[in-house]
């Protein structure tokens, strides 16, 4: 039926859009605002997630070694660490290297550590990255039991707090997006209900003549989809423009926040929002139509 009558449905939808210009405009504006904020929420979530991932991947375990160790013992310790479950990457940091790094931190002050300390007090160490940052504590404990290692450090306490924070940021942003989507559906349903209400006489007549519900629904659906798409395009225009200029200024002023800026990823987000616009249009129309079809 949809194919046979598509021309008719499309024509009816276009006539209705132009006839109810004020209402159509109100609906499109509502959609645009809702989808814009939904887009803001998505970008916030994506960036928060990205930031959290980066923080998590910065977590590493440092295993300090007992001081006099033969090269052979050192090799043994390294193999033991590598064969520990959950270890991704192991880097050896010699005591000379460790001192070098410390020296670099003081470099501006033109201060010779070696001179002051006399001999190098820093131990040899391994820097270990866990496969899954969430498992850092277990991995660290396992490594601490390897003979030849006298101490393991991974930011105990701090890491657990960070995971607590990232977990809540993720949950809250999901909840925020769901609430926004529901709000959008509600607003859209309300504006479309007004448009449908102004045509209730026509709907009643169609029902009495013997039109099927779907015959009556299609023009409204097409109308809803078109309004959703137009609203989505407006929202995405604003969002893309705003985000691009944010990325540009962030590179200089907010360099410490790593914004997601891969073009194809952003295009995916924007296309997703277009689809969301169409779906919101359909759901909103469906909700507001059903009451009037009950004749």
């Amino acid at each position: 039926m949809i194919l046979k009558n598509f021309g008719y449905f499309l024509k009816e939808a276009l006539i209705s859009l132009s006839r109810n210009r004020v209402l159509s405009l109100a609906t499109v504006t509502t959609m645009a605002v809702c989808i814009f904020f939904l887009g803001v929420a998505v970008l916030l979530t994506v960036n928060a997630g990205n930031f959290m991932n980066q923080l998590e991947s910065d977590i590493e375990i440092i295993a300090y070694l007992d001081d006099p160790l033969t090269d052979e013992e050192l090799k043994d310790v390294e193999t033991d660490i590598q064969s520990t479950a959950g270890v991704q990457e192991v880097t050896f940091v010699s005591k000379e290297e460790a001192l070098q790094r410390l020296q670099e931190k003081f470099s501006q002050e033109d201060y010779d550590l070696q001179q002051t300390l006399g001999k190098n007090p820093l131990p040899n160490s391994f820097e270990i990255k866990a496969l899954n940052p969430q498992e850092v504590a277990q991995v660290a404990q396992a490594i601490g039991d390897i003979p030849g290692i006298y101490k393991v450090n991974y930011g105990q306490g701090l890491v657990e707090k960070l995971f607590q924070v990232t977990k809540w940021v993720r949950i809250l942003s999901m909840v925020f997006m769901v609430i926004l989507a529901l709000g959008a559906i509600f607003l859209i349903a309300t504006t479309i209900r007004l448009a449908v209400f102004s045509r209730r006489k026509e709907i009643y007549l169609m029902k009495l003549i013997g039109a099927t519900d779907w015959f009556i629904r299609w023009p409204f659906f097409i109308e809803g989809i078109m309004m959703g798409l137009i609203g989505a395009l407006i929202a995405i225009g604003l969002l893309a423009g705003g985000y691009t200029s944010l990325i540009n200024s962030a590179q200089t002023a907010l360099f410490f926040i790593p914004l997601v800026s891969q073009q194809n990823f952003l295009v995916q987000v924007y296309m997703g929002l277009v689809a969301v616009g169409a779906v919101l249009g359909i759901i909103g129309t469906y909700i507001s139509l059903n009451r009037f079809l009950n004749v």
Partner: peptide, 8 residues
């Protein structure tokens, strides 16, 4: 025509 269009 509307009445007939509606019934297909």
């Amino acid at each position: 025509a509307f009445a007939m269009k509606v019934v297909g």
